[in-house]
Structure formats: C-alpha cells, structure tokens
Amino acid sequence: MGSADSGSQLPIISIAPYWDSQSANTTEREAVSKALHAACVEYGFFYLDISQCVDLAEPEELARLAREFFALPQVEKDKIALKHQDFARGYQRLKENVTNGKADNHEGIDIYRPVENPDKSRPLWGENQWPTVLGFQTKYEKWIEKMKKLGMILMEAMAYGLGMNAEEWRDLRAQVDDSFWVMRIIGYPSLPDDHDGFSCGAHKDYGCLTLLYADPTKSALQVFLRKRLWINADPIPGCIVCNIGEMWEIWTNGLYKSTLHRVVHRGTNYRIPFFFEPNFTARVAPLPVAGDTPNEVYKPIVYGEFLMKKVGSNFSVDPVPGGKHD
C-alpha cells in the first residue's frame, strides 16, 4: 500500500462554542457546524480542539495508568482476560485482536457501557473487568463521562451542520441518548521492521463517532482519502482525532463516508479511543434531511443487531462474538 503522505492536513475544529452553552453565540456555533459538515463530506476525519473543555493533564494521567498496567507480568494482566466474561469486556493479549483475518500488533482493554442484568454467557452482555492499578477505574470513569458529554455535543453540532431543525435533532438525539459506548485502552509495542502486517490493519469504524486521544508517536495513525492517498493523522497538542463511523453514513444516505484508517506504530506508546455509539436498540435509517444520494441505497438497521454481526471475528480466542474497535 505504500507509505503515508505527511503533506496533507486534516481540518482542526474547536468545539468550544458548543461546550460552553452560556457564552457562545449563534454565529460561532453555525461556523463550527459548517466546518464539521465540510470535514465529514470531504474527509470523514478531523481534529477536535478540546483545549478549552478538558484539562489536558487528565488524558496524560490516563496514559500513565495504561503504561503501568501493560507493564505488569502477563499472568497479572490475564486475570481480566476476555474469557473470564463475555469475550468482549476485558484484556486482550498481543496479537489477539484480528483485523481482516490478520493479527494486530497491539494489546488492549475494552470497557463497554454497563448493562442491566449482566450475563457473561450472552455476547456483549457481561460485566466490565477493571485493572487493580491504583486509581485506574476512578480516573477512567471520569474520562468516560466527559467523552459521553462531548459525543452528545458533537452530535448536536453535526446535526445542525447537516441542516436539521430542532425537532429533527430531538428525534436523532433519542437514538443516541443511551449510547452503547465503548472505550479501548491500547498498548502498542514497536512494530518490528520486518513485520509484514500492521499494528492495526486497515478498517472502518462501524459505530457513530470515534474520539481518540492519540499518543505522541508520529506517522502511526494513517487515513485513506478519496484521492486514493494515505495521509498521516499525527497528534496535535490540545486536540483529539475524530472520525465518523458507518452509522453516520447510513443517517446521511452516503453523503458522509466512514473512512478507512490503519495504525503502523514504530514507537512504544498508548492511546485511548472512546467510541460514542447509538443506543443498542436504536433503529438507524437515512434521515429525511439527508435527501437522496445517487447510486446509494442504505437500508435501516437496528444498531445492536448490526454490532453483533460485525464483531464476531475480531478476536483469535473463542468463536463467541466479542467487540473491537480500532
């Protein structure tokens, strides 16, 4: 596939006018929504400036906690392995994740939205497994709450960028107000020079919004543009990397595209993607405001059913459906 181009740059958008509901004016919000719309049509990826919304020392602390966990002996990490729950929630060993049938060169922890009446024999319906590292669960749960808030704010800004009115936004909001979110904590060892694969193979995200706190390693995250070109989405201080998943492609009847991306990691670092998803029972269908897109036909789906079908081959452990995102 060749190397990625560092000359192209994804747009940088500040969400501050929507985050601070009291001080922002309508003109500022409209500018944000228009910028988001343009980014979703052109790239499906963008940088979101959250420097005015979040203490940037917070995700740095989360990365430190991740480093502490991944440095533990294998026997300790395996105490929260996927097999102890529903094969979705918990720790995955190096190369246990699979993309396009090929092992990924990373290890991780998956945390999902808690469910009522958990049953680990039911796919995706177990209980989360947290590391016993001091402060880990408390600090990550705080980050989850902030990312849930950010996800909802971003959904609203995107809805108005698409041209929705207040009533149409309320209808869309009802599909994501109990988001079946996922948070991944990913540890990347350096990819060997002779490795013929990727840290994470080329794929599209199948949910709604990905909010990625990226590590400092450059040339790791690579995005495939419609110009048939891979570009680097290198970290920018004060920003997270955002991309849209297949649900936005359905909602917009193909106007917004979920974009291929991959990870080729030559460093040793940790990144924390949060996936803001629709409700498990949400019926996702093209929105009236999206209009018709030539040659595109998107059928309605129920998100939970769609998710179950998507995640069945993501782990090289037991053939019980689990979960996986980038």
Rank of each mutant, 00 (worst) to 15 (best):
I244G: 09
G2M: 08
W19V: 01
N269G: 05
T138M: 13
L307S: 02
D205F: 10
F274G: 04
W251Q: 09
T210S: 09
G254A: 14
T293Y: 12
M1Y: 11
H203I: 04
V41P: 09
I250Y: 05
I12Q: 03
L150C: 02
A159K: 03
A57W: 08
K148N: 13
W181N: 03
S23V: 15
D78N: 08
A88C: 03
K257P: 01
M183D: 03
E58C: 10
G101C: 10
D49L: 07
D86W: 00
G312T: 10
T268V: 14
W130L: 06
L124A: 12
P73F: 07
I250W: 08
L56T: 10
S6C: 15
G151M: 04
G304E: 03
L56H: 14
R29Q: 15
N105I: 11
Y91N: 01
A103D: 13
P278M: 00
R67Y: 13
I109W: 06
N269W: 00
F275T: 04
Y112H: 08
C242P: 02
K309T: 14
I111C: 04
F198L: 12
R226M: 12
G126E: 03
N117W: 06
K227V: 12
R67V: 09
L211D: 02
L65H: 01
C53D: 05
F69M: 06
A57H: 14
E96G: 02
